[in-house]
Design a protein around this nucleic acid. Sequence first.
DNA 1: AACACTCTTGACCGCATGGTCGGTTTTATG
DNA 2: CATAAAACCGACCATGCGGTCAAGAGTGTT
Lengths: 189, 189
Amino acid sequence: MPRGIAKDHDEKRAAIRKGAAGYFARHGYDRASMTGAARECGVSKALIYHYYDSKEALLFDILSTHLSELEEVLEEARDEGLPGLIRATLMAYENADAEHKLQLDALATLPAELQTPLIHSQRNLVAIMSDAVAKERGDLSPDRLRAVTMTVFGILNWFYMWHRPDRGLSRADYAALAADFVRGGIAAA
Amino acid sequence: MPRGIAKDHDEKRAAIRKGAAGYFARHGYDRASMTGAARECGVSKALIYHYYDSKEALLFDILSTHLSELEEVLEEARDEGLPGLIRATLMAYENADAEHKLQLDALATLPAELQTPLIHSQRNLVAIMSDAVAKERGDLSPDRLRAVTMTVFGILNWFYMWHRPDRGLSRADYAALAADFVRGGIAAA
DNA sequence: AACACTCTTGACCGCATGGTCGGTTTTATG
DNA sequence: CATAAAACCGACCATGCGGTCAAGAGTGTT
């Protein structure tokens, strides 16, 4: 038996995943070239193709990893109620803004077979949030429950678009504000 | 003197703008080809280049027109208060979801000189909304005022991502729900 | 030491894309 | 009716892209 894969295989793959995610997010997935991503990671393009079959496979791995981590985090914060979920979500985006951005605007470019499992994860996240909303407002009709849940996701998903780490409220401060906002909003909806 | 431009020049230009906006939004600006946009509009690619200098110029016109209309609408609804602004915004997106989507995820692909005037319009929209928020909560610090304003935009800008015209709440029903949500949220933030 | 396989690369390929060009048709003006 | 420009098109071009390949260097196994 000859040698197997290197022991640092996973770390190197992860480094490429992380570097490419940043590059893709900064330039836009479609516009970003594999050559550029490779340069960003300090490796040759051919090496990326050693670790990944295609640009699509790389994107899939980025999104899949991100969503799995998010699921784990939310699953853990499940019984802390809505404020806990909001805080956990915003904190999980720390150092993952790139992956989050990609999830929102590049997922749709994947072929349907690859989208399916990712959308399944998304639905799970929505379900967790929806349950927390329903716990505070059991009287909402299904349509309104869904609308309110999506309203909460709008708040969370928009955060990366306007927040600057060096200006204004900190992430944690905004998490508190958002939790208050949602509490008041749900009561009034 | 020879003939000037045709009397229906503006209409045809507008038709291309609208057709291309839909095509760009459906396929993603970068991925969408000018050949495809031309087919969608029922004209040749060369004709689009007769009306527009480049793909970028076309995108700029789409976004510029959209933002101008939005500014007009919000300026008009200015003194109806926050609920009026929310309703006006959501209603203005009717038949303009494509342009809105493009504004959110393709504006950044334009060169800085073209982005500047568009960002200026965006800032104006934010200012209008911010004033309305401040009118209800004059006690907020600048940082918190900005955070609350962006929270409202998150709710509005996320709408097109989850709403399906044939399912769930209608646009108008959601506008009412969102207005209530924001009222309660602002009071609690 | 010999082997077999992974790791890594620069050079290369086919293709789709944004954009151009030469030409034809149409139409307002004189 | 003559004409000059606008309106419109099919064919073409250069470039940059995702992806491949052949080959070398490095390393765990026997």
